[in-house]
């Protein structure tokens, strides 16, 4: 029953300041979508949440626990509460679909192979891919890879599910399918909190309970899909309408 709170997050790579004091609350049990142009630090934000990158300053809270500066060993326990779907699915290409989805169970449980198989089949069935179980990642399409990645992220029933641009590179039908999958997963998983990084406005408006827009390293707008549709914030309007003219310089 925990929110995620990001307080004053800063991150720079050399002289390039990506996050400049970002504040955001990701509410428990909802889908929060972070939008913004490519290169504004959205993926950096997700990697900081997972401890794959550490912020230069600022804090990340899960509930009341500050996880920002936990040592690596402690952070590993925190990661057990997360599932993550990477931008390009990041399936292990040396393993089959089955082995990919079974990976977290094999690493973290003492389940028998028969039980693992049952859970993997169920998880793949929930994303409509029970037939692809013995295929290699290179034998399936981009959309199918994303769905396998969702099945892998969900198999240990995480509290927090993070998606890094889940529909990038997919055709419109597969995009709608993945959107539906994210919404369905949220609605059928009690206690799940989802955070989605996207620059796909149509998808965002379809699935989001809360939308936050990232611009120049800070959150400049927060609200619901209806708030986004009705706002006259010039940056948000330009981004939503995809105009070249406006405060966002190309």
């Amino acid at each position: 029953m925990s929110d995620i709170r990001l307080v004053g997050l800063r991150k720079a790579f050399g002289k390039q300041e990506v996050l400049r004091g970002l504040d955001l609350v990701v509410p428990f049990g909802k889908i929060t979508v972070i939008i913004g142009r490519s290169g504004t630090g959205k993926s950096v934000l997700l990697k900081q949440l997972m401890g794959l990158l550490r912020p230069d300053s600022g804090s990340i809270f899960i509930g009341d626990t500050d996880i920002t500066r936990l040592p690596e060993g402690e952070f590993r326990k925190v990661r057990n509460r997360f599932g993550m779907v990477f931008q390009n699915a990041a399936l292990f290409d040396s393993m089959t679909v089955y082995e990919n989805v079974a990976f977290p169970l094999r690493e973290h449980t003492r389940l028998r192979e028969r039980e693992i198989r049952e859970r993997v089949v169920a998880s793949l069935a929930s994303v409509g891919l029970a037939d692809a179980i013995d295929k290699d990642p290179h034998q399936i399409s981009g959309g199918m890879k994303k769905r396998v990645a969702v099945a892998r992220a969900l198999i240990r029933k995480p509290e927090f599910l993070l998606f890094d641009e889940p529909t990038t590179g997919l055709d419109p039908i597969m995009t709608a399918h993945v959107d539906e999958l994210i919404r369905h997963t949220q609605d059928t998983s009690p206690g799940l909190t989802s955070l989605v990084i996207s620059h796909d406005m149509e998808a965002t408006l379809r699935i989001a309970d809360k939308i936050a827009m990232l611009f120049e390293g800070r959150v400049i707008f927060e609200g619901t899909a209806d708030d986004v549709r009705s706002t006259d914030h010039p940056v948000v309007r330009q981004f939503v309408e995809g105009r070249l003219e406006g405060p966002i310089k190309v």
Partner: peptide
């Protein structure tokens, strides 16, 4: 291809 990040994200060293 972020596979190493994926391993880390699943709490595996």
């Amino acid at each position: 291809t972020e596979q190493i990040d994926a391993i880390e994200s699943m709490s595996v060293d």
